[in-house]
């Protein structure tokens, strides 16, 4: 009889586990009540998945289109005031918190030449190596962060912008180890208490995800330039690197420009005009 009892317990256990966890329990308790909520796939709209054919989404017709977005930072036009304005505009409109510890979040910030361009030090050059440089995600052509991400939570769009999908990031921080520019930050805690003034037009982030500069993808989508470029008083020139007629290409043509760690093969798309 031992075997029979064991078999019985097995069946009872399995059905209990399935029944109580699933719909059977609900049906017993509240017959009919949850039918609608339970089976959305029974509705005529069962095709609502990402690769459906029936719903239509299109880009905003006013959206700016580019083949490879880039930024030039004109160090001659930069003043401490315009730099500050650019940083503050970004921080406010993206709800970037200010955390007074080593677990801070940064999208765009100022750092001395020797930190932004380590190993390219030139103590004799004087003028341009004495300045603070604006530092942000380089939106690399060959981004190492995208290469290492195990969930495609960070990805490179066709227009060259390296974006974060905060809905998908698992917070493994592999991208932070991979980024050769220290451009990524991790939300070690809930950032909301550290946002001084909240901007309702853009979401905050949750604890446990990595974030960084998004080249104002949300602005380009409605036909506007990035906040920092707008606030910099012409010192930051945003444009399409692949378009020979763009303002960016014009700025790059006449001036000597440097990029951060070009020897790593990442092909950064932020150019510094010196």
């Amino acid at each position: 009889m031992g075997v029979d009892r064991r078999k019985f317990l097995k069946i009872a256990g399995i059905s209990a586990a399935l029944g109580l966890g699933g719909s059977v329990g609900w049906q017993l308790l509240r017959p009919g009540q949850l039918d609608a909520a339970e089976e959305p796939w029974n509705t005529p709209y069962q095709w609502v998945t990402r690769d459906h054919g029936a719903l239509k989404e299109v880009p905003n017709p006013r959206a700016l289109k580019g083949k490879r977005w880039g930024m030039a930072v004109d160090m001659k036009k930069f003043t401490p005031a315009t730099a500050k304005a650019a940083v503050e505009a970004c921080n406010y409109y993206h709800n970037v918190p200010s955390i007074p510890t080593k677990q801070d979040i940064k999208w765009i910030w100022l750092a001395p030449y020797k930190n932004v361009f380590p190993e390219v030090e030139n103590p004799m050059a004087g003028d341009y190596t004495d300045m603070d440089y604006i530092t942000m995600c380089n939106h690399c052509d060959q981004p190492p962060c995208v290469r290492v991400c195990p969930t495609k939570a960070t990805f490179r769009r066709d227009d060259g912008i390296v974006l974060m999908d905060f809905h998908r990031c698992i917070g493994c921080r592999f991208c932070m180890a991979a980024c050769p520019y220290g451009s990524r930050s991790f939300n070690f805690q809930d950032p909301r208490p550290f946002i001084k003034k909240q901007y309702d037009g853009f979401p905050t982030r949750a604890k446990g995800v990595v974030e960084k500069c998004n080249f104002c993808a949300e602005r380009l989508a409605v036909g506007k330039l990035p906040y920092c470029a707008e606030a910099s008083g012409g010192a930051m020139i945003f444009g399409d690197v692949d378009n020979a007629g763009s303002a960016l290409r014009k700025a790059l043509r006449g001036r000597y420009s440097i990029r951060r760690k070009p020897n790593l093969g990442t092909n950064p798309q932020v150019y510094y005009l010196v």
Binding site: C149, A153, R168, G171, V210
Partner: peptide, 17 residues
Amino acid sequence: GKPTRILNVMLYPTPNS
């Protein structure tokens, strides 16, 4: 950071990682 999303590694398999 987001342990509840660990299955994303299998839901969005990424061989380059």
